[in-house]
Amino acid sequence: MALTRDQIATRVAQEFKDGDYVNLGIGIPTLAANFVPDGISVMLQSENGLLGMGPNPTEEQVDADMINAGKETVTAVTGASIFSSAESFAMIRGGHVDITVLGAFEVDVNGNIASWMIPNKLIKGMGGAMDLVAGAKNIIVTMTHADKHGNSKLLAECTLPLTGVNCITKIITDLAVLEVKNKAYYLLERAPGVTVEEIKEKTAGELVVPDNVPEMQF
């Protein structure tokens, strides 16, 4: 069975190591904050200038001066710091953020990602995504393996305008966990009950399949 959004987020959170500074994009990536494994502490970075983002506030805690990069009201955890946008992107661009998780429209075997612009549709902008993919040490893409028409999003070469080149290392989809290297997708894990055949069918770029592909563990 293909994973639910919460299951994808749970699998993403398994990638976190104790003491990681993590930036989570909007959508499924943000959900990963709810599934951090026991015994692991991570500090969430919000690119508008907050390191140590906490949960959304209670009615009493709401403060117009405390928002995240999605412009939602948030809180800060104990030990947080707050700084300017230039400082925020210095830590992003400078490679100080350990893991960035973000969604995408397409990825390809060169580690390229397209996530911000569909030609002839209204373009709202890239926000901080281009800086994040240029700077983070470890970039994980979460998305459904194929679009709603069944077309693969894991391509040999992206067709949409790019967000960044040669930057994606790992992809976690509703069907599989894959690593991107040597101009191919290396299948690491499959979702419980999903066959290697189905993953092959829905992966347009070259797929390298080892003899044994374990199921994801939850």
Binding site: F89, R93, G127, D131, P161, G164
Partner: peptide, 27 residues
């Protein structure tokens, strides 16, 4: 890009006319 925008302002105010960044390369 948001980080480039912040740095454009920072550099502008700091007397640096331009800077190199990996952000946006190939896009």
């Amino acid at each position: 890009p948001q980080g480039t925008l912040a740095e454009k302002m920072r550099a502008g105010g700091a007397g640096i006319p331009a800077f190199y960044t990996a952000t946006g390369y190939g896009t």
